[in-house]
Nucleic acid binder design. Structure first.
Lengths: 341, 341
DNA sequence: TTGAAAGCGCTAACAC
DNA sequence: GTGTTAGCGCTTTCAA
C-alpha cells in the first residue's frame, strides 16, 4: 500500500548527521547548530520527508488525536458543534476522529472501543439518548479524559446549554407579549434536556401568574411529526394564542401545519422554538426561538478537553452556556382579547 | 497521559504462551489450538487487552484510517455525504479522520500534509472551490488513493452528481408546465458544477423551443443573498413566470423575498431549486427541486475508495450519480396567459 | 502448533 | 552539539 516512504534515517544519512540530530532539530528537543539545521531542512525538503506520526505516537505515547462521538453528523445541531470542535482541536495540533453512532448505543460502545485501540488522547462525546442518558456512568480508559457535550453527567466534565434558562426566556417572552393561554409541544418526558426546558418554562410562567393546562402539553419524540400535533392544540377551548416547542424541528412542523390550516402567524398564533438551527431564520415568517450557542459549546468543550490534555487536574465541571432569545417574526403581542369572534 | 496499558506481552505471559501465538490468534494468521485459543481469549477479557492499532500500523504499514477533507462539515450537503462515508468506511474497519478546510485552499493543503504524516490509507476529498478547482492536478503521495467527491477532476477517481442532467430535469419540468419566460439565479460562472447545470438547463430549454434572455440570468456566489436578487427578475418586462436557482439555498432566498414582496407561490410564480437539502421539503409551500442523491454519492465514493484500498487497479473513473426531480408545491402549471392584469 | 527474535520509524537517555 | 542505541507494541519470518 504505502510504498517506500522516506524515514528519518534517510534524512540523517543524506544530511550527513545522526538520526538523533534530525529528531532534535524536528522537535527542538536540543539545540542544533545553525548550519546543521539548515542542511537538515534542505534535505527534508528535497526528499519530501514527513515524520510518521504513528511511529512517534508509539514512542511518546500520545497520538495527538481525539475521538468525537456523536449521534448523527448530518444533524445540523451536531454538525455545527463538530465544526467548532474540529477547528479548535486542529489549531492545537490534534486530529479529530469522527465517530457517528447513528443514535445507537451499541454502535456508540463499539466506537468507544475503537478509540481505545487507537489510543486517542481524549474523547468528546454527545451521547445517544436511547431513552435517557444515565445521569452518571463509569469511566472507560482511566487516564483518557472525556468531555460530555449537550448532556450533563454527574461527576464528569460536561458542557451543555442552560436549558432551564432557555425555557424561562421563552416563557418570559410570551408572557410579556400578553399571552395567557399557551400550549407546549414537548419532547419526551424522560429526556433531561426537555425536562429542564419545561421546568424553566413553567417556573417563569408561574412568576407571571400563569399556568399550563394539562391538556395543553403534548409529549412525543422531538421530530417533525410532533409539530403536526399542534392541530390538537388549536382545537382546545379556549384556543391557545401561543405555542412553545422544545426544539426547532418540532416548531417547524407546527409552523407548517398552522399555515396549512390557514392560521396567520403571528397575528392569530405565536410560535416559539428552541435551538436556532439555520433554517429557523429562513422561514417566512422567520421563527422566534431560543438560540443555543452551538459554536460556544463546541469551543468550550474543546478547550476544556485541551486543558485536560495539558495535564491540568480539574475537578469535574459542568459548564453552562447561556442561551438567548431571538425574537423574529413568529411571535407578536396578543391583540386585546380577540374582538368579535 | 496513557497509563500502563496492557500489551500483547502481558497477555502472552498470563496465558502461558508466546506473543506470536497471541498475535496469530488475534489475526487468524495461523491456526491456534482450540484450548490455547480459549485460554488466550479468557486472558484478554480478564486483562481488558486492546491491541494498539498504532503499533500494528507501524508494522503492517496500513493504518486502517482514511482522511475525509471537506470545506465545511456544518453545510448540510457535505455533512450528509460525510455521514454516509463514515458509515461505509466504519463498516469495513476504517476510521474516518475529519478535516474541515473551512473553504480555504491553504488550510486544505495543510490538512493533506497532516494526513500524509498520519499515513492514512486513502483520502476522500471535496475540494474547496476557491475560485474554480483546477480541472486536473498532481498526485501527492503516490500510492495513496484519492477519490474526489462532488468535483470532477481529469485523470482522477471522482464521484459527482450528473449536474447537466439535473439542469435538464429542471428545464423539462418548467417547460412541460407551460412556462416560457424563465429567469435563472445562477452561481458563479467559474464554478464547474454551475456551468454544467446551466448547460443542461439551456440545452433542454432549446429542445422545447425556448431560450433564456440575457438579462434573465443573474450570477453570483451561491448564497442566500443571490436569492434575494429575484427581485430584479420579477421587475423584468415581461415578467418571468418561473425561476430556476442553481441551488436550494439560493432558491430559499428567492422564496423568502418573493413572499415578502407579496407574490403567491406557485400561483403567480414557480420556483425550482437544486440539491434537495432537508429544509426544502419543510418550507410552505415546499420547494420543488432537483434532488442530488447525497447518500449515494457518499456511499459510492466510499466503496470506490474501498476497492482501491483492496489493491484493485482501476483506471480513473468518473462516477455520475443521477439526480431526480422532486416536484413539490413551489411549481405549478402556468395559468393560461395571465388574465386581466 | 508454538516460540524466539528481528524490525517497522521514531524519541530520549546517554556517551562523546 | 552530535552520535549511538534501546525500546515503544506489534507482526512475521524462521526454526523447533
Amino acid at each position: 500500500m504505502r510504498g517506500k516512504v522516506v524515514t528519518i534515517r534517510h534524512v540523517a544519512r543524506r544530511a550527513g548527521v545522526a538520526v538523533g540530530t534530525v529528531s532534535h532539530y524536528l522537535n527542538r528537543s536540543a539545540p542544533v547548530a545553525d548550519g546543521t539545521g539548515r542542511r537538515i531542512q534542505r534535505t527534508i525538503d528535497r526528499l519530501g520527508y514527513r515524520p510518521d506520526l504513528g511511529a512517534r505516537g508509539l514512542r511518546v505515547r500520545r497520538t495527538q488525536s481525539v475521538g468525537l462521538v456523536l449521534p448523527n453528523i448530518s444533524n445540523p445541531f451536531y454538525s455545527e458543534v463538530a465544526r467548532e470542535v474540529e477547528h479548535a482541536l486542529w489549531e492545537h495540533g490534534f486530529q479529530t476522529l469522527l465517530c457517528d453512532s447513528a443514535g445507537d448505543r451499541e454502535r456508540e460502545r463499539m466506537h468507544l472501543d475503537g478509540l481505545e485501540s487507537r489510543r486517542v488522547d481524549g474523547i468528546l462525546i454527545i451521547r445517544s439518548s436511547g431513552r435517557a442518558v444515565p445521569r452518571t456512568e463509569p469511566d472507560r480508559q482511566p487516564g483518557v479524559p472525556v468531555v460530555y457535550v449537550d448532556r450533563a453527567v454527574a461527576g464528569k466534565h460536561s458542557v451543555t446549554s442552560d436549558n432551564r434558562m432557555g425555557g424561562e426566556l421563552a416563557a418570559r417572552h410570551l408572557a410579556e407579549l400578553g399571552h395567557r393561554r399557551i400550549g407546549v409541544l414537548a419532547g419526551e418526558k424522560a429526556v433531561l434536556n426537555v425536562q429542564q426546558r419545561l421546568q424553566g418554562f413553567r417556573h417563569e410562567l408561574d412568576r407571571h401568574g400563569l399556568a399550563l393546562a394539562d391538556d395543553a402539553v403534548i409529549n412525543g419524540p422531538q421530530a417533525l411529526e410532533l409539530g403536526y400535533e399542534v392541530e390538537r392544540l388549536v382545537r382546545l377551548q379556549p384556543r391557545p394564542t401561543a405555542v412553545f416547542a422544545t426544539n426547532d424541528i418540532v416548531a417547524i412542523g407546527a409552523w407548517r401545519r398552522l399555515l396549512e390550516l390557514g392560521f396567520r402567524i403571528p397575528q392569530e398564533i405565536s410560535l416559539v422554538g428552541f435551538d436556532d438551527v439555520e433554517m429557523s431564520r429562513l422561514l417566512f415568517p422567520p421563527l422566534t426561538t431560543v438560540s443555543q450557542d452551538k459554536a460556544a459549546m463546541g469551543r468550550q468543550a474543546a478547550s476544556l478537553l485541551l486543558r485536560l490534555l495539558q495535564g491540568e487536574e480539574l475537578p469535574p465541571e459542568h459548564i453552562l452556556i447561556a442561551p438567548r432569545l431571538v425574537a423574529r417574526g413568529s411571535t407578536a403581542a396578543l391583540e386585546k382579547e380577540e374582538a368579535p369572534s
